Amino acid sequence: MSEPSAPPVPALPALRRQALRHHLLTEVRRPSRRRWRVRVLVPVAGALVVAVAAGVIAQPWAPRSAPMVVPVEQGDRVGATLLLNRMAVVTADRPGPPSGEGAYVYIRSRGAFAELGDGPARLRPVHEREIWIPRDERGDGLLRQPFLHVPIVGAIPEHETLTDVTPNAALIDLPDDPDALLATLYREREERGRGNSRDGAAFTAIGDILRESLVPPRTSAALYRAAAKIPGVEVVRGVTDAAGRQGIAVAHTERSRRDEWIFDERTFDYLGERSYLVADTVDGPAGTVLGTTAVLQRAVVAQLGRRPQR
């Protein structure tokens, strides 16, 4: 069963802005020279953004963990097309997302992201993240995650209300035809005129949808078929997510960085993401991990802030 259709909305600019709003201050997009960069396009609570950015740059209480380095395996480009189209076929035959009268989509995940700018990139401690997204109509959402290990009273709360949130139904209101979907992604990149290449931007946009939306089978199948058409997409095997689950990854490399979507190799369930360097840079040697995540639970709940049974 697919999500109810939403009122007409601008296709990708709104989708992209909302996905990055949901992802508030959680991932460094790519290595840079002596600058700490976060993936944010739309500020949510500007004072919070400033406080967190300042806190992350200098955290005397943060553990100085060693950089995490993984092997840089050879990707398989031919296998990526075969795998993604196979995933689309399998996914299209599955039942839809949880039905019911719940007004919010709930997603619980785990992740760790690197600090850049002072020697080799080091992962911050893994933390859990919960987000509540309006299901059918625009409204408030909620984000819960510990930003720092030592709280700064009045500056950095562990939960933040997200205002005027694009509903899940609008985020997944995409063309079923993979060529039309990919053309929409490319057009959004051209309109924005900055950031990744159009192929890298399309890969990132699809990853944003997979990560923090409740996606019906028809949309998932279209996303996988569209991803199969992105030049440079590869398959990488033997990948582990932030929860320690092994899977197979669909990957794209740009500017010395490889981004991966991780799936269960048997069921093709989405597990999480991983990003790391594929070449030596000022931020570390090839294989240095910049981010790792795992989606632990997706559900529909009746009230903002209510948790489903685990």
Rank of each mutant, 00 (worst) to 15 (best):
L142Y: 00
A155T: 02
L171Q: 07
A294Y: 07
Y224T: 04
Y106H: 01
E254R: 07
T288G: 00
D199F: 06
A92E: 14
E190K: 10
V105D: 08
G232W: 02
T293V: 11
P231I: 02
L304A: 11
A251T: 12
G55L: 12
R245V: 12
R122I: 09
G207M: 06
D76E: 03
A11Q: 12
D241W: 08
L277T: 00
S2Y: 01
M68D: 12
T288C: 06
E265P: 08
V233T: 04
V70G: 05
D176W: 12
I133N: 09
K229Y: 03
I206V: 15
L41P: 01
A169E: 06
P125Q: 14
R64T: 14
E27G: 07
P4R: 13
A58R: 15
D140W: 06
E158M: 04
P95M: 09
R237V: 09
A19Y: 03
V52Y: 08
R274C: 04
T267D: 02
V105H: 03
A88H: 04
S213D: 13
T288H: 08
R124Q: 15
R124N: 15
T161M: 10
A226Y: 05
E188G: 13
I152S: 06
L24R: 04
P63H: 13
T161R: 04
D283S: 11
Y104K: 08
R257P: 04
P95D: 05
S220H: 14
A19M: 06
A243M: 03
A180C: 09
D173C: 05
L296E: 12
T161E: 04
A202I: 00
R257M: 13
F113W: 02
H149S: 14
E260W: 12
L271S: 10
S213P: 10
R310K: 14
M1H: 09
L12Q: 15
L304K: 00
V69F: 11
G117Y: 11
P43G: 06
V9F: 01
M68W: 09
S275M: 11
R108C: 00
G55C: 07
T204S: 14
N85G: 04
P216T: 07
L304T: 07
D269T: 10
A299S: 15
P125V: 12
E273L: 08
D199Q: 12
A47H: 14
R17H: 13
A54L: 14
H22F: 09
P175V: 10
A62E: 14
S65D: 15
L143Q: 10
V301G: 06
E273F: 07
P71I: 00
P125T: 05
F263W: 02
A221F: 05
R237S: 06
R135P: 02
H149V: 14
R35G: 11
T253A: 07
P8V: 05
Q303E: 15
V89C: 01
D259A: 11
P217W: 09
T163S: 03
L15V: 14
D176M: 09
V105W: 08
L290R: 01
R33M: 03
F268R: 06
P146N: 10
A53W: 13
E130P: 01
P216L: 01
D176A: 14
E260V: 01
R266D: 15
L84S: 03
R64E: 15
V215I: 15
D164W: 11
L123R: 02
G193P: 00
D264K: 05
I172L: 08
A11G: 08
L12P: 03
R144M: 11
R122P: 12
R274N: 10
E260Q: 05
G195K: 12
Q303V: 01
